[in-house]
Design a protein around this nucleic acid. Sequence first.
DNA 1: AACGGCAACAACCGCCCCCCA
DNA 2: GTGGGGGGCGGTTGTTGCCGT
Length: 415
Amino acid sequence: MAIPETNPPGDAGAKPEDDENNISSGSTTFDWGRGIPLRLGKREETLARLHLEFDEGRPPCCDKVGIKKGPWTPEEDIILVSYIQQHGPGNWRSVPPNTGLLRCSKSCRLRWTNYLRPGIKRGNFTPHEEGMIIHLQSLLGNKWAAIASYLPQRTDNDIKNYWNTHLKKKIKKFQSALESHRHMASNSTTTTSYDDNHHHQLINKSYSSSSTTDQKRILINLTDQSTLVNVSNKFNQQLQSTTSTSTYASSTENISRLLEGWMRTSPKTTTILNKSQQKEKLKNQNTNHFIPTTTSTHPIECKDQPNKFEQQESCDLISHEDFEYSLLSFENMSNIAWHKSSTSDSDLHGLTQITNNTDEKLRLLSDASMQRLIENQQQPFSLFEKWLLDEATDQQVQDLIDLSSINDHRFPANL
DNA sequence: AACGGCAACAACCGCCCCCCA
DNA sequence: GTGGGGGGCGGTTGTTGCCGT
């Protein structure tokens, strides 16, 4: 059970397991495993009363005076979830005064978005997810929300933290090891430093600095960088196998489970749309029962009955099948992205003929990525890019995938 | 057992953009 | 056209637990 993550660190005594999945909240018993209380208990009433007292001459919501900070308590979570269950997410400014929570509206929104909303997967990242993050980060940079849109069950905050605490170090170690290896192989090799913000820029840099005299050296660098980038092949393969074997079982067992049946994250809307696209999509989907969101990190409410989330067939919690569909969509969108582009199949054929070396492919990859970022923002990889990525050897790909298994034996910290 | 360093992560802060009046 | 408010996003901080000494 992942509920403990909703508890503040060090608040072990409040863990639901300690009370057989039940947390007593005033007169309302909170069943962490099955349901959610809709009535406010004594504690909530007290909070509301306190808030009313505080409300006299109350400064703006996010004014620091009187605003509680720090970890959220289970009781606060209950209040927030109960309120959102009744009124739906959004209009966050009205949440604190209406619930009695002594939190600023932004804090409420973040708590909901990052931890309480349904469909959030928590816990360890799979190698597949790691691969996706590494690759997407290489293409998008630190656009965590955009990256999160490709991982429907992960939040941008989660991905960001995981990147900062795990992946960045792993990649740094990996690159250090590569550089060390290269240094041993050739003393004349120029090293490049890893820029966690845009290692795709290194590709551009390497390319732009390419000259006939430096071609060999640059090719070495590009090959190393391609190792980072070429993870896409591997995770695309994994993606295929994942979708066919239904192994992507959600471990979402946090408080959002309690809201099962009233919300969903449409896998069909995981592609980030620009504002005009969103509007258009809203128009088109007005006949449907839910509103698409800009990113998967944001909840979708039933449009026809915004205040009644439960037992909505069309608004149920994202299912495993939905998520698998989203992964399939990832592949499909790749095709769409390609076909949408102005480049035709014949163009691809022509490119295939003119680009048979790695650095040229990577240059095109970089160009294609940047072009797509400019034009399409967060479109997934096109077939073109996947083709470009095909250059890496299996060993290179495997090396990168094995980043997750890097340990200190292989890459001592003092490298 | 006590202490210090470090890792992990939840949450906050501040900037920015978009929408609407 | 413009200013204010709401909300989104990325960077950073604070807290806690773990681990080694």
